[in-house]
């Protein structure tokens, strides 16, 4: 299906143009999301898209599903409530690096721990774009930010590793440059039963890129092309070779009991035993 038809089918009439800056990769990632949803064949009525606060979280308002633009960091609690109360729904979380890894970090690790069937699409632009380019938990060390004029001291999270350590059963990373692969990763995340993280490396030329002299939008996308390495090939690199590269693809997949299915068993047991 052509993008025009996908826009007609999955974007709300009259809500575009979006608020994102020229050259922002968020449009590519949101496009990848609707392409993946198209491939699932799911009914729009049965999909909820829940976001937090930040540039990427504005995507929920453009998309024609049951949508929540929640509070900063709180997309996962809202999404968890929707999934638990209506387990038949497919629940997708749109979030950013600040939203999910800083103010929402606690919710992130606990949602992963529960292995509840949510798909988290995390737009990683390495910065707080909406507030003007402050450093986030995914800003590389020694980067400039509007709150780090001398460079950042903080070390960034490896979110896929964090999710895995917390109990997530699916963790993947893609990039805006590798858009067709990103569609595949999102599709796999949605199809996976359990907590799925898909980190999408985005680019913010207007703020993060400008502060760090990373060039214009095409230059930042070319950086993704030159520094992303498929997961299997990445594993074969030595530490020196890995230093300025990042792996893309499915980074972790496992089977574990899914939370809403396990809670359904609790309900069945409680009903049989008639209370405590």
């Amino acid at each position: 299906m052509f993008m025009e038809q996908l826009i007609e089918k999955y974007f709300r009439p009259g809500r575009l143009p979006h608020i994102w800056c020229p050259g922002c990769a968020n449009g590519i990632i949101t496009g990848a999301l609707v392409k993946a949803i198209y491939r699932t064949g799911l009914d729009k009525d049965n999909i909820a898209v829940v976001s937090g606060i930040g540039c990427s979280s504005r995507a929920s308002g453009y998309l024609d599903f049951n949508t929540v633009h929640s509070a900063h960091g709180r997309a996962l609690p809202f999404a968890t409530g929707i999934k638990l109360a209506a387990p038949q729904m497919t629940v997708i979380v749109i979030t950013g690096d600040g939203d999910a890894a800083a103010i929402g970090g606690n919710h992130f690790i606990h949602a992963a721990r529960r292995n509840i069937d949510l798909t988290v699409l995390l737009y990683n632009n390495n910065t707080y774009g909406m507030t003007g380019g402050q450093y986030s938990p995914l800003t590389p060390t020694n980067s400039k930010a509007s709150t780090a004029p001398y460079g950042t001291v903080d070390r960034p999270f490896d979110l896929a590793a964090l999710a895995r350590g917390a109990g997530a059963t699916f963790a993947a990373r893609g990039s805006a440059f590798h858009a067709p692969m990103l569609v595949d990763l999102i599709l796999s995340g949605i199809r996976h039963k359990g907590f799925s993280l898909v980190e999408a490396v985005a680019s913010c030329p207007i703020s993060y890129g400008r502060q760090n002299k990373l060039g214009d939008a095409p230059a930042m996308l070319k950086w993704q092309r030159d520094h992303a390495v498929p997961a299997a090939a990445y594993e074969k690199l030595n530490d020196e070779q890995k230093a300025d590269k990042f792996p893309i693809g499915v980074l972790h997949q496992a089977d574990a009991p899914e939370y809403t299915e396990e809670y359904a068993k609790i309900i069945a047991r409680a009903r049989k035993e008639g209370g405590h």
Binding site: V50, N66, V68, S70, A71, R74, L76, P77, F78, A79, T80, G81, I82, K83, L84, A85, A86, M89, N106, H107, I109, H110
Partner: peptide, 17 residues
């Protein structure tokens, strides 16, 4: 939930259904 904020957030999500 993992904290008080999540306690109300999860309930609001459920209320939407």
């Amino acid at each position: 939930m993992e904290d008080e904020i999540a306690g109300i957030g999860v309930a609001l999500g459920a209320s939407l259904t």
